[in-house]
Amino acid sequence: MSIPQSWLRPILTMAERVVEVRGLTKVFNGFKAVDGISFEVMKGEILGILGPNGAGKTTTMHMLLGLTTPTAGDIRILGMDLRRNREEILSRVNFSSSYVSLPYSLTVRENLTVFSRLYGVRGRRKKIAELLDVFGIEEIKNEPTRRLSSGQITRVSLAKSLLNDPEVLFLDEPTASLDPDMADRTRKLLKRFNRERALSILYTSHNMQEMEEMCDRIIFLDRGRIVASGGPAEIMAEFSGATLEEVFLKIARKDGGAG
């Protein structure tokens, strides 16, 4: 799996903020799912959002994608306010989740064609051919999605998420349905995209080892609040844990926590 040279972009200054979140809050029927969190993602950074079930990770990601309306707070992506510039922002970011699929009756190529048109991708055929090659799904391009394994669907979904050369990629447990070999390949591929194209990634996963391996920085959510933030090593040191998993268990079980 190799990334075509044409995709390589000059790495811009690492200090550029691509996502800025201030005082983000979401209340569902009196329950604070996300409680005034603030964070940012820098250009070329992989930020992991970690936390037990119900901590607010997915709600946060959905607010960043405009799928859920925040109760309070501001979201700026690529320097623009999400409320006012939805179309412009969404054309420059993308999303993949192991919980979201693609139309079952369409072939892999048809699915990628439909989404490349939605994102207004230029040089569609070439781009799709490149992605089919990068994700090793060339041989299944004419297969209806319903006939694919969950691992293959995940790879097609990831290919879809890179159609528009996104500047920010939102990944919700992207390797959840992959076997260890394919999960490892996918992580390496995402790392390469991140490194070679200065692609910023916002990442959620329940696989602590994966988070350690992938993320430059992690924010740890518990009951809607950020309880820890920093590089994986910093967080492990702060909570005296040998692994992120240990830290996770400490935080999740503290005061009968959500986990």
Partner: peptide, 18 residues
């Protein structure tokens, strides 16, 4: 419903399509 059944709605609504 076809979009709902195929769990594709999120892909649609995170795209620039209004």
């Amino acid at each position: 419903l076809e979009d709902m059944w195929s769990r594709n709605l999120l892909n649609v609504f995170v795209s620039p399509m209004s």
